[in-house]
């Protein structure tokens, strides 16, 4: 069965979606990612969708789910590189993905994750004092 590869980079997990996903593939990715977060203790997940030519409500829901689940598992999620046509269509469809962090590209996304982690550590430190 085909799977979308998940790369580990330090504290972060990286996923680049490059194929037109069928629904089962999207579900598998969701399962794989959550179990990987748990296994590796990752602090952040970056999903690059710049190669995706379409996001429908199913894939949109998967993205929202991953973001929500990883938050519970104490990891931040950033979705990067959404194409303009995809963004316009998604809004028209009625999906705004509220609560999902976004960034223009992988670079900015990584910055965002690092800032999140730094912020969390500072918070945790304060609570311990």
């Amino acid at each position: 069965m085909d799977r979308i590869p998940i790369l580990r980079m330090g504290d972060f997990l990286l996923v680049t979606i490059q194929v037109d996903m069928h629904d089962q593939l999207a579900m598998t990715l969701q399962d794989d990612l959550t179990s990987q977060i748990e296994k590796t203790g990752a602090k952040g997940v970056l999903i690059d969708i710049s190669a995706l030519e379409m996001v429908d409500s199913f894939i949109g829901r998967m993205i929202a789910n991953i973001s929500g689940m990883s938050r519970i598992l104490d990891a931040s999620t950033v979705v990067v590189g959404m194409q303009p046509a995809v963004a316009i269509t998604l809004v028209e469809l009625g999906l705004s993905l509220a609560g999902v962090q976004t960034a223009l590209n992988v670079d900015r996304g990584m910055q965002r994750l690092r800032a999140d982690v730094a912020g969390k550590e500072a918070d945790d430190g304060r609570h311990q004092e």
């Binding site: 959404m82 303009p84 963004a87 809004v91 028209e92 705004s96 590209n105 900015r108």
Partner: peptide
């Protein structure tokens, strides 16, 4: 809608 789309793209 424009504002929402811009946010989805990460800006």
């Amino acid at each position: 809608k424009t504002v929402t789309a811009i946010r989805l793209m990460g800006a």
